[in-house]
Simulated scan of single mutants.
Amino acid sequence: MPRIPLLIIALFFLIGGVAHFVFTDFFVMAMPDYLGYHKELVLISGIFELLGAMGILIPKTRFLAGCGLIALIVAVYPANINMALHAERYPDISEIFLYARLPLQFLFVWFVWWAIHLEKRKTAI
Rank of each mutant, 00 (worst) to 15 (best):
K60S: 14
L6N: 05
I58Q: 11
I8D: 05
V42S: 04
I70E: 01
A75F: 06
V18I: 12
I58D: 12
G66L: 02
H117G: 14
A65L: 09
I47L: 11
V74A: 03
G66H: 03
F106A: 09
L102A: 03
P2D: 15
Y77L: 10
K60Q: 13
H117E: 08
M83L: 13
M1Q: 13
A19R: 12
I70R: 00
A10L: 07
I70D: 00
S45P: 04
V109W: 02
A75K: 04
A115R: 04
F27H: 00
I93P: 00
V28E: 06
I70W: 01
Y99R: 11
E40A: 09
P2S: 08
R3M: 10
P2A: 12
P78D: 03
H86I: 08
Y77N: 02
W114Y: 14
R121Y: 10
G46A: 09
M29P: 07
A65H: 15
F21D: 01
L6K: 00
P2Y: 13
A115T: 06
V112D: 01
R101C: 00
H86E: 10
P78M: 02
M54R: 11
T24L: 07
G17L: 03
L51W: 07
F108S: 03
L50H: 07
V18D: 07
Y37L: 15
L14V: 08
A19D: 08
H117D: 11
L50A: 04
K39S: 13
L7H: 10
F48Y: 08
V109I: 10
T24F: 09
T61I: 10
D92R: 12
M29K: 10
G46R: 09
F12N: 09
Y99P: 10
F27K: 01
L118I: 15
P91T: 10
A53K: 00
P5G: 04
F108D: 01
L6H: 07
V74L: 07
R121I: 09
V76A: 06
V22G: 12
A53G: 07
R62S: 14
D25T: 12
D25H: 15
A53N: 04
D25F: 08
L107G: 10
I56W: 06
I116F: 05
I125Y: 09
A79P: 05
I4W: 11
A124K: 15
P78Q: 04
E88Y: 14
M83K: 09
L11G: 11
A115P: 07
F21P: 06
G17D: 05
L35Y: 11
I47C: 11
P59H: 04
F12L: 13
L6T: 06
V74I: 15
A65N: 13
L51N: 04
V76P: 01
V109F: 02
A75H: 03
F106Q: 14
L14A: 15
I15D: 13
C67T: 15
I15R: 06
L57N: 07
A115F: 06
